[in-house]
């Protein structure tokens, strides 16, 4: 579904991602693990077109989207839940979700979003900025789902969220995958969360994928070594 080939990203003169190859199949959940500063967020931003690629291609469902601006990539079916959630703080919960509807038209958020995240229905007319971290995370995911994506990108969704909510989040993400049939690429530092949801785990270090395992065959100790500081 998502095919990345020889992706290069540079900030000025310093190259951050070096010829990175990555594929996410339809209906698959892939976790990208790595320490801080190894290129996880840059990878996500490059996939969204927020930072430009210096080389290589990104293809979605076989169509090349490397040259498209961000909003057109969203229309093609890629959605993004950024690190730090980045909901629109002064807009209400309902309005936040509705911003995702513009790409495909429609004025009201589909009911299944509120079924997935009942807490958002309760908080519907609160301002996004007044929600707790976990609630904001759910809002950011709901907003991304409102764009009807084929591929969902999540950048460190567990950051700053309490453990019980993290377990709920993992369950919800798997449910979304099963019900909506989409592919998920999630970057993570928390190994237990990645093991909980991912079908496949990649390890990124210094802008290169250095290790890859299906979950069944995963050498937990080895991945943990990559993550330890």
């Amino acid at each position: 579904m998502l095919d990345v080939a020889k992706l290069k990203v540079s900030y000025g003169q310093s190259e951050v991602l070096h010829d990175l190859d990555l594929a996410v199949a339809a209906n698959e959940i892939v976790a990208v693990m790595g320490r801080n500063g190894m290129g996880k967020t840059t990878l996500m931003k490059a996939l969204m077109g927020i930072v430009p690629a210096a080389g290589g291609t990104v293809a979605l469902g076989g169509a090349d989207i490397t040259a498209l601006p961000t909003y057109q990539r969203v229309a093609r079916g890629i959605a993004y839940v950024p690190q730090g959630r980045m909901i629109f703080p002064a807009m209400t919960v309902a309005e936040n979700i509705e911003t995702g509807l513009f790409v495909h038209g429609g004025a009201r958020a589909p009911d299944y979003l509120y079924e997935l995240f009942p807490v958002l229905l309760e908080m519907k007319s609160r301002r996004g900025g007044n929600l707790s971290g976990g609630q904001q995370q759910q809002l950011a995911i709901a907003r991304a789902l409102a764009t009807q994506p084929k591929v969902l990108l999540l950048d460190e969704p567990t950051e700053g969220i309490q453990p019980s909510i993290i377990r709920d989040l993992a369950r919800t993400l798997r449910r979304i995958r099963d019900e909506r049939g989409l592919s998920i690429l999630v970057s993570e530092q928390v190994l237990s969360f990645a093991l909980d949801i991912a079908d496949r785990v990649l390890v990124i270090e210094n802008g290169r994928i250095v290790h890859e395992d299906a979950r069944a065959a995963l050498d937990e100790a080895k991945v943990a070594r990559y993550l330890s500081v």
Binding site: M48, I50, P69, T70, Y71, V74, A75, A79, Y80, P82, M86, F88, P89, A90, M91, T99, G100, F102, V103, R143, A144, A146, T147
Partner: peptide
């Protein structure tokens, strides 16, 4: 409120 994120929800 957030130009980057607005683009990332398809605006």
């Amino acid at each position: 409120q957030n130009r980057t994120m607005a683009a990332a929800v398809g605006i």
